[in-house]
Nucleic acid binder design. Sequence first.
DNA 1: CCTTGTGTTGAG
DNA 2: TCAACACAAGGG
Length: 323
Amino acid sequence: MDASCVDDQTTTSETISTVAPLVTTTSPDGEAMSKKLPSSQYKGVVPQPNGRWGAQIYEKHQRVWLGTFNEEGEAAKAYDIAVQRFRGRDAHTNFKQTDTDNDEHATYEANFLNRHSKAEIVDMLRKHTYNDELEQSKRTLTIHKTISRTGFNTFSGSSSDSREYLFQKIVTPSDVGKLNRLVIPKQHAEKHFPVQKGTHSKGVLLHFEDMGSKVWRFRYSYWNSSQSYVLTKGWSRFVKEKNLKAGDSVSFQSSTGPNKQLYIDFESKVGSNHTTENIQPVEPVQILRLFGVEISSVSSCSGKRSNVEIDFLGFQSCKKKSY
DNA sequence: CCTTGTGTTGAG
DNA sequence: TCAACACAAGGG
């Protein structure tokens, strides 16, 4: 029952610029009833009794707690991240402005957000590990795990440009055989590569850079006869030089920047020991995640999982909302 | 004990 | 949807 005798202007803009929300407002007269906590100037941020700040976001009439923070701004940033994951890049934020048009950094972060469920993002925020995870994710993507076994060194070439996975394919015997062509799964072709189907087009020439910064040119076209997209001219040279075998995989990336440079990489089939050393003891299962959607795999994966988003908020305790 | 973060309400 | 407020749960 704290009377509202104290008229601390808690309305809008307050004079709490220098944090230290903890009491000390020392009402001139009384002593024990200055419980009024300072409002935050930021959206989604609430004061804590101990002077810290909590972050929260609402969804479907329910509050999702985003953790507590020492600094008001930190809480606000946590909210910003959450709101973008929950409501999209266009959502209103405290600080960030969605300039995914030219800012490569922002683009990658948006990508990162999409790859994780809401629950995962919230968990990172609550544990204050979001930035670490983001940076680490960026590293593994940029550096890229695989190394060319062709002796091509220096994959320091285009170091600072971040790339995003497009898709991967486990090559079939015919992909590396005498047909001199690689079939691009329609799903991926139509999503990532420029096309002009229907027409008897002789295709288009695409440039790909490999891990050794070598540029490969493949003719990319659509075969009406087999209703499939293929890489033809130039492909056999790649197969030969990289010594591709059936079961190996090729993956495609694209720079996130404006130049839209395409990249190609390959990976030996797990368990096979062709020539030189095989780098990582990778797991027998090959799953590639593209924007949070599991694309391909060699084992299991019976049910087809399209781009259905599976957001499971496992942290919401059971609460019935009579509404 | 102290802090977190949930219950809950009323305003927008 | 949102934040203010109270306070119970739970860790140390």
